[in-house]
Design a protein around this nucleic acid. Structure first.
Length: 108
DNA sequence: TGGTTGACTAAGT
DNA sequence: CACTTAGCCAACC
C-alpha cells in the first residue's frame, strides 16, 4: 500500500501530527491505529524513530511519565524539549497532563 | 519457525 | 500507595 509499509511508519505519521505544546501516549496512538493492545509495539517504534523526523519526545506513557527519556542523548533532553514548548515537567512527570494531552482518536 | 525483547497497560497484592 | 504479575503486539535473531 502507499500509506505505509510497516506498523512503525504509521506510528511515525501519527506522532508527526502531534501539535506544538501537546503530548500523547503510546496507548492513544495504538488505539488510533485500531490496535489498542499494541502500545508496546508503538513504544518499540519510537525507539526506531530517532533517525526519523518524529517528535518522539511528545509521546509518553499513559500517566504522563517520561519513560523514554533514556533513549535520548542527554537524560534531560526529552524534558528540555517539552519545557521548550511550554510543557511543565517535574521529576519526569508531565504536569497538567490532562490539559496538554492530545488524543489522535478524538482530535485527528 | 520459535523464542526473546521492550519508550505499554490494566489488574492484583 | 508501591511493587508484581499477566496479557498483547511487532520487530529482531
Amino acid at each position: 500500500m502507499s500509506e505505509s509499509s510497516s506498523f512503525f511508519e504509521k506510528c511515525f505519521t501519527v506522532a508527526r501530527q502531534i501539535p506544538y505544546g501537546r503530548v500523547t501516549t503510546y496507548g492513544a496512538i495504538a488505539r488510533y491505529l485500531a490496535s489498542p493492545q499494541s502500545a508496546r509495539a508503538v513504544g518499540y517504534a519510537m525507539t526506531a524513530s530517532h533517525a526519523k523526523d518524529v517528535p518522539a519526545y511528545r509521546v509518553v506513557n499513559r500517566i504522563g511519565l517520561l519513560t523514554g527519556k533514556h533513549h535520548f542523548e542527554g537524560i534531560n533532553l526529552m524534558q528540555q524539549l517539552l519545557e521548550n514548548e511550554g510543557i511543565e515537567v517535574k521529576n519526569n512527570q508531565i504536569q497538567n497532563f490532562e490539559i496538554v494531552f492530545w488524543d489522535p482518536s478524538k482530535e485527528l
